[in-house]
Simulated assay, not measured.
Amino acid sequence: MRRREFITLLGSALATCPGVALAQTVNRARRIGFLSTSAEDDAEAAKRLAAFKLRLQELGWTEGKNFQIDVRFGSNSGERIHQAATELTEIAPDVIVSTTSTTTRALMNATGNIPIVGAISGDPIALGFTKDLSHPTGNITGFTTFNDTLAAKRFEMLHEIVPTMRIAALMWVPTNPQQVLLETKTKEAAHILGIELLSLPIKAADDISRALAAAQNQHAAAIIVAADPLTVANGRAIIDECISMKLPAMHTFAFETKNGALMSYGIDLVENYRRTAEYVDRILKGTKIAELPFQEPARLTLAINLQTARAIGINVPSTLLARADEVID
Results as ranks from 00 to 15, higher is better:
Arg3Thr: 13
Glu5Met: 15
Ile7His: 11
Thr8Trp: 12
Leu10Arg: 10
Leu14Pro: 04
Ala15His: 13
Thr16Lys: 05
Thr16Pro: 02
Ala23Tyr: 12
Ala29Thr: 14
Arg30Gln: 11
Ile32Val: 11
Ser38Ile: 09
Asp42Glu: 09
Ala45Thr: 15
Ala46Lys: 14
Leu49Glu: 11
Ala50Arg: 05
Leu54Lys: 15
Leu54His: 13
Gln57Ser: 15
Gln57Cys: 08
Trp61Gly: 01
Thr62Met: 14
Gln68Val: 14
Ser75Gly: 09
Gly78Asp: 12
Gly78Glu: 12
Gly78Arg: 03
Glu79Trp: 03
Glu79Ile: 13
Ile81Trp: 04
Gln83Phe: 12
Ala85Asp: 08
Leu88Thr: 09
Leu88Gln: 04
Thr89Cys: 10
Asp94Ile: 05
Val97Met: 09
Val97Pro: 08
Ser98Phe: 03
Ser101Tyr: 11
Ser101Met: 09
Thr103Val: 08
Ala106Cys: 09
Leu107Cys: 10
Leu107Met: 06
Ile114Met: 07
Val117Trp: 10
Ile120Pro: 01
Ser121Thr: 14
Asp123Trp: 02
Gly128Ala: 10
Gly128Glu: 14
Ser134Met: 05
Ile140Ser: 04
Ile140Thr: 10
Gly142Ala: 05
Phe143Val: 13
Thr145Lys: 00
Thr145Tyr: 03
Asn147Tyr: 04
Thr149Ser: 06
Ala151Ile: 03
Lys153Gln: 09
Arg154Gln: 01
Arg154Glu: 02
Glu156Ile: 03
His159Gly: 05
Thr164Ala: 09
Arg166Val: 02
Arg166Thr: 07
Arg166Tyr: 00
Leu170Arg: 09
Pro174Leu: 07
Asn176Phe: 10
Asn176Pro: 01
Gln178Thr: 14
Leu181Trp: 14
Glu183Ala: 15
Glu183Lys: 14
Glu183Ser: 10
Glu188Val: 10
Glu188His: 14
Ala190His: 01
Ile192Tyr: 12
Gly194Ala: 00
Gly194Cys: 01
Ile195Tyr: 01
Leu197Met: 03
Lys203Leu: 13
Lys203Glu: 14
Asp206Met: 06
Ile208Val: 05
Ala211Pro: 03
Ala213Cys: 07
Ala214Pro: 06
Gln218Thr: 11
His219Ser: 12
Ala220Asn: 04
Ala221Gln: 09
Ile223Leu: 09
Ile224Val: 13
Val225Cys: 07
Asp228Arg: 01
Pro229Lys: 06
Thr231Leu: 02
Thr231Arg: 02
Gly235Val: 08
Asp240Thr: 15
Asp240His: 13
Glu241Ile: 10
Ser244Gly: 15
Met250Val: 07
Met250Tyr: 00
His251Thr: 15
Thr252Leu: 00
Phe255Gly: 02
Gly260Lys: 10
Gly260Gln: 10
Leu262Asn: 02
Met263Glu: 01
Met263Cys: 01
Thr276Tyr: 04
Ala277Asn: 08
Val280Pro: 00
Arg282Thr: 00
Leu284Asp: 05
Gly286Asn: 01
Thr287Val: 12
Thr287Gly: 02
Ile289Glu: 05
Glu296Gly: 13
Ala298Lys: 11
Ala298Ser: 12
Leu300Thr: 11
Leu300Phe: 15
Thr308Glu: 08
Arg310Ala: 13
Ile314His: 00
Asn315Phe: 02
Val316Asn: 00
Ser318Lys: 13
Thr319Phe: 06
Ala322Ile: 01
Ala322Cys: 04
Arg323Asp: 06
Ala324Arg: 04
Asp325Cys: 03
Asp329Val: 13
